[in-house]
Simulated scan of single mutants.
Amino acid sequence: MDNQSLKDKRMLKIIAIGMPIMVVLVIVFMIYLKSISDSILEPFKVATLTSGAIVVLCDKQALDIPPIQSAFDDVFYTKVSGSSPTRYESLKAEVNGQSIELTIGLDSRDLNLFWLYLASTETGGKPMGYIKSEYLTQKIEHCE
């Protein structure tokens, strides 16, 4: 066998072994990111389930809890690219004198799509997830 054939065989072995390993690593990483996002958003979800909870949008309007719970039951972690948040508002769950605050970003293409950020993080980075809510779309108009 000539030198080129040996290199080609070696490359095929590397690809045959390396590609499945890369795929597994990407899947494990995506699961890890989802679990981190779930654990960060979970306190907000739990707060909305607590008796006496109040959810406040843009620090001035109290929201009905059931539509917020419904939106947070269907958090998703990927979306079609090409859009970005155009404006940001605070979304706060208050229970027993404590509050958990998120920042939501209104999507530039889908008016019912909201990007979820921790209130302490700088907006414009990687969101913790996305929710869809016609209810929030109606209410966010009153924030201006």
Rank of each mutant, 00 (worst) to 15 (best):
L118R: 15
M128N: 13
L25Y: 10
V95T: 08
L111N: 15
K9C: 13
I131E: 02
I14K: 15
T137I: 11
I54V: 12
V24P: 01
I40S: 04
E141P: 12
E94S: 14
T48A: 07
M1A: 14
M22S: 06
L106C: 08
D73I: 10
P20H: 10
V75L: 05
K79L: 09
S35A: 12
A62M: 12
M19Q: 13
S99T: 03
T103N: 05
D73E: 12
S70Q: 13
Q69C: 11
L25H: 06
M19T: 15
L91F: 00
Y117M: 03
S35T: 13
I21D: 00
A119I: 03
A16C: 09
S83E: 00
S133E: 12
L113A: 08
Q4P: 11
K7N: 11
V55N: 02
G97Q: 03
L113H: 04
S81P: 12
L102F: 05
I14R: 15
R87K: 13
N112L: 04
T121V: 08
T78R: 11
S84C: 02
D74N: 15
K34I: 09
S70N: 13
V95F: 04
T123L: 01
M1T: 12
A53K: 04
L63H: 03
S5L: 14
I21Q: 03
D74E: 14
Q69S: 00
N112Y: 03
